[in-house]
Amino acid sequence: MSLGTILHDMWDIFVTYYIGQNLLVTGVGYTLALSAIAVFFGAILGSLLAIGKMSRFRILRFIITAFVEIMRGTPALLQLYIAYFIVPMVFTFAEMTPFACVAVGLSLNSAAYVSEIIRSGIEAVDKGQTEAARALGLTAKTTMLKIVLPQAIRNILPALGNEFVTIIKETSLASTFFVGELMTTYAVIKGITFNIIPTLMDIGIIYFIMTFTLSKLMGIAEKKMKAGA
């Protein structure tokens, strides 16, 4: 199989299936939707975990640390499998589609990583800033809201952008459950054409365009923020 035929087949498959059968729009659509949900709920839940980890309550801190370590120490695919079977048992009041189960799994996974990003972002703020604020008689809450968090966000945002890129790539694991995102299109097209390599190449290019665009956008946003200070 020559390079020429591969390129030819890549183009052929792209036009016939990704454009002709609309797989590009649905695949990318599901991938981005899944990533956006995971990052959104991951960020909210992750912030709560980060706050909880700074609390006075030992038991709470222990539970959060255990959760974060387990999520970081086990494969994401395993977590998705577990979510796939457990989520419908927990959320019995609503019909949980495979997509919803995977979304919950990815959100929890992302929350663990985001909480660490936020925690280290807050810890990176010079201790003297907190001391100066407290020495002026400001409460811990005011100090956090007016001094520490605004400075921490500048440390956090770039890392959060990276997390978004990572999540986009990790959604490919959802193809195991056939939820319709970009990696699922591989199984669909392979089943019809048996032409594996060009299909994989096409998918790789589409993923790369998504993640590369996102990183570039993040880079621009970062520069703008630095200029603002």
Binding site: D126, Q129, A132, I147, P150, A229
Partner: peptide
């Protein structure tokens, strides 16, 4: 303070 600790933000 020795290190001034003006609020950077």
């Amino acid at each position: 303070f020795q290190q001034f600790n003006l609020f950077n933000n």
